[in-house]
Amino acid sequence: MDARSQSPRYHFLAFPIVGALLAALPFALHNNYYIGVMVFIGIHTILALGLNLLMGYAGQVSLGHAAFYGIGAYTTAILTTMLKWPPWVGLACAPMVAGLAAYLIGMPTLKLKGHYLAMATLGFGMIVKILFVEYYPLTGGTSGMTGIPPLSLGKLQLVDDRQFYYVVWFFALMLIWVSYNIVESRVGRALRAVHTSEIAAASVGVDIAKYKIQVFVLSGVYSGLAGALYAHYIRFVNPDPFGFMFSIQLVVMVVVGGMASIWGAIAGASAITLLSQVLQRFEDYEVIVFGAILVLVMIYMPQGLTKSIVDLTARRRSAKPSKPEVLP
């Protein structure tokens, strides 16, 4: 038997299945509004994946992840509108800049034991949002930046929602594959080891701080890419989407999807994205609802939505044959 991992091969089987479903979905959705929602679910999946690696595997929380998302969006916006760089180059630079920002925040804080990263990112998120607003010549202030060019494939400009849908989900699935590879490797094992016993992990030579920083930078890179995709999809950026509220939504996505669950990122991103569509008209109460969800999920489904549902169906199935015995 292959003793290598607890996670069976269906993870790899899931790729073609989920890929085929996602490829077919636009044909079933006739309303462009739903395609737009699916694009956002894709972008949020990328963000949740990165944050999930950080929370579920490095055991650290970021309360300012929206800032890296914003840095990605503004990076490509500035490069493609002011410097007229090609959109794909902007899209490639955005994750690097966001990753560098994560490195600069993570380097001093992740060397310390404890949850300094949460506080550092909280402050960082606020500062970045203020910079977006105040650094008018570069960012356009509160009115934002318009005229961001679309991505294109050869002569084809990807301005249509359906085209962009495929671009976003191509990246999302690729990053699911990448994240899964990392989790099921020497690096992933080291991270899981740190989670159970830091002292034992160090005793076998795991450089704890190094891995925490790497994962944080990686999650910054994911967020930067998500931000750039957002910018080339909406083709307009302003500071609003990149604030504290969205950072919290991201944390809720990860918790709802299930920490340390790669596929859970899609579930969490879908649930929260759809919910926030519904809640949009209650604006001010949104915060309360997300706070309540966070608390309820933590109490009743600490494993997250995906694992809880899987467990529930498994219990149903195993409960059936034993039923007659329970009857008097």
């Binding site: 290598r4 094992r189 899981r192 989670h195 159970t196 016993s197 034992a200 992990a201 795991v206």
Partner: peptide, 14 residues
Amino acid sequence: QLFGNMTVIENVVM
């Protein structure tokens, strides 16, 4: 101090 959530062999791999 084992890595309880890993398999026996994964512990040695660590």
